[in-house]
């Protein structure tokens, strides 16, 4: 039962990644692309934790924590660059 639910959740988040990719490719402006990239990072975190449940190991928490930190820093840096023309003033 858990395996079937895991496969369902994998399908949902994979489809969500495709939706995000569509928004990145033809988003009207750059704020949309930043938002789609941030959503993509969140979906990848969910996929990593699901894979950790599937394999039954606790290794993937560190991976997802690192992905969360790098994703947040990159989103803030890109927004900051578009806002002020500089990342660190």
């Amino acid at each position: 039962m858990i395996t079937a639910a895991l496969v369902f959740a994998f399908g949902c988040y994979g489809l969500g990644l495709l939706f995000n990719l569509w928004r990145i490719v033809n988003g009207p402006n750059s704020a949309d692309r930043i938002l789609a990239l941030d959503t993509m990072v969140i979906n990848i975190i969910a996929l990593l934790i699901l894979y950790g449940i599937l394999r039954g190991t606790a290794v993937y928490y560190e991976v997802s924590m690192l992905v969360a930190m790098v994703g947040f820093v990159s989103t803030v840096a890109y927004s900051r660059f578009l806002l002020r023309g500089d990342v660190i003033e």
């Binding site: 858990i2 639910a5 369902f8 959740a9 969500g16 995000n20 959503t39 979906n43």
Partner: peptide
């Protein structure tokens, strides 16, 4: 566990679908 997995999958799909 299966209930939480299915609900979270639906929520994630809705969130990404709202983006398009």
């Amino acid at each position: 566990i299966a209930f939480f997995l299915v609900v979270s999958g639906i929520f994630g799909l809705v969130g990404s679908f709202g983006l398009i």
